[in-house]
Computed example of a mutant assay.
Amino acid sequence: MHICFLTNEFPKDGFPHGGIGTFVKTIGSALVKKGLKVSVVGINYVAQDETHIIDGIKIYRLKKSVVKGFSWYLNSKKINSKIKAIHKKDPIHIVESSELGLAFINKLKDIKYIIRLHGGHHFFAESENRKINKWKGFQEKKSFSKADGFIAVSQYVKKHTEQYLSYQNKPIAYISNPIDTDFFKPIINTQLADKIVFAGTVCEKKGIRQLIQAFPYVKKEFPDAALEIYGRDWFYPDGSSYIQMLKEKELPQLGEIIKDIHFHGAISYSNIPLAYSEAEVCVFPSHMETQGLVAPEAMAMGKPVVFTKLGPGPEAIEDFKTGLLCDPYNPKDIAEKIVWLLANKAETEIIGKNAREFVFEKYSLENNIKQNIDFFNLMIKRELPFTEI
């Protein structure tokens, strides 16, 4: 079986990537170990074509077009040409993309096309109370019409996406994103007392502003606390930096404690476990997630996690058993949950152990890969009426 993932985000040293890139690397490597062929096709970060083989995955990074107004067309044309060339040489059985990814893909005979719901434009427009962008909305609807099947990474994303987009009576499976528990595992003797770690894109919807606002409340109880922020910057449409906005508008209000808030920028995939390992508490107060990778990654390392109570948060954490859930819009509530974990060492240790066991049960790579392969086989072998698996 040959699976081709469409993404621009496959991790590359020196360049930022998001959760989809991490997901594709994790699942791709595991599929290769099971004897499947895996290709990744996407637009490159730099102005050249590149081909790499990493962990058995063939990665095709295509030179990005910068022709104003036509880059979307020219980039799609390059992707279509590459898929056709790969398929001719080594037949592809499944092409998988995120929500918008199939909009301008030309479907080829004998290939099944799957959309994995990582959280598309309609989904996040609803969660962020903003209007649908007509161009992106058009692309997403066009993409959905081309899909032969769907995979939802949480019940929440499935339910809220279908309020805006139809699955058109096509097969849909619920399969969580996998966590590599051999990669994300406890690291002994690296934890630092009162160290709080956030990882993710530094932007409004990840709740980082409220976490910063929560920090003074934490410092009152734990004067030695430090907040370590790992992740790439986010930029407004005018090109201005979100991190710079925080430094200009939020940090000055905190007084001298700003010396204990550290922005580390983007972190390489290989160094993420080390960042988690130094934390006494990991905090991810996202306003919205489809599933979120960072929380179960940290949980797999036995770390106590504060996660959002909104969206799929309750699917990932049982409050005060495998972690704590917070109101991501309420800095005081975020602070109270952090303080509780820092103050209750014995209970926190139990929560960390429970968290790792839970990740093994729900997100383990072995079980997850079997679910994915079963669904791929189902899609390849026969046409199905609507079935929820």
Rank of each mutant, 00 (worst) to 15 (best):
L100G: 07
K220Q: 13
G137C: 07
E289Y: 05
G313Y: 09
K37G: 07
E297Q: 15
A125N: 12
S71R: 10
K146H: 01
K142S: 08
A266K: 12
A298I: 01
K88R: 08
P312E: 05
A226N: 13
L384G: 00
Q253S: 07
M245D: 15
A30Y: 00
I175P: 01
N133F: 05
T322G: 07
E162M: 11
K88W: 00
M299T: 09
K78G: 04
H121L: 01
D110H: 12
K158D: 08
E221G: 01
K146G: 07
A335L: 12
N354I: 03
M301Q: 12
G255N: 13
K370E: 15
E140I: 04
D238L: 05
K88E: 14
P385M: 00
N75F: 05
H264D: 11
P11N: 07
V67I: 12
H264Y: 15
S143P: 03
E347M: 03
L100E: 10
V46K: 07
V40G: 01
D49M: 06
E228A: 11
C4S: 12
T190W: 09
K141W: 03
K249L: 10
E361W: 04
K370G: 07
N44C: 03
A300L: 06
E318S: 11
I187L: 14
V32S: 03
N8M: 05
F10K: 04
K12P: 02
Q163F: 02
F307H: 14
T322I: 10
E99V: 02
D224V: 08
Y230I: 14
K303R: 02
Q191H: 00
Y230N: 14
R130W: 09
F375I: 09
R130M: 12
V67L: 12
F235C: 08
K321F: 09
I338C: 08
P252S: 06
Y363N: 08
E96L: 11
N330Q: 05
V218K: 02
I94Y: 14
T290I: 03
K134C: 09
A295E: 08
A275S: 13
K84A: 14
L341E: 02
M379N: 07
F307D: 15
V95W: 00
S270C: 04
Y217T: 08
Q291P: 00
N372Y: 15
F375Y: 12
P331Q: 06
D194K: 09
I111E: 07
E280N: 10
K77E: 13
N106T: 14
A30H: 01
I172Q: 01
S98F: 05
V283E: 00
E280H: 03
G311W: 05
K78R: 15
F375P: 05
A226G: 13
K159C: 05
E256V: 13
R382W: 03
A335D: 01
F386R: 13
H160P: 08
N368F: 01
I86Y: 05
P171Q: 03
G311S: 15
D148F: 05
E228V: 14
I272L: 15
N129E: 09
K131T: 14
K58R: 10
P91H: 08
A300Y: 11
E297Y: 06
A298V: 02
L342Y: 01
D327R: 10
I92H: 07
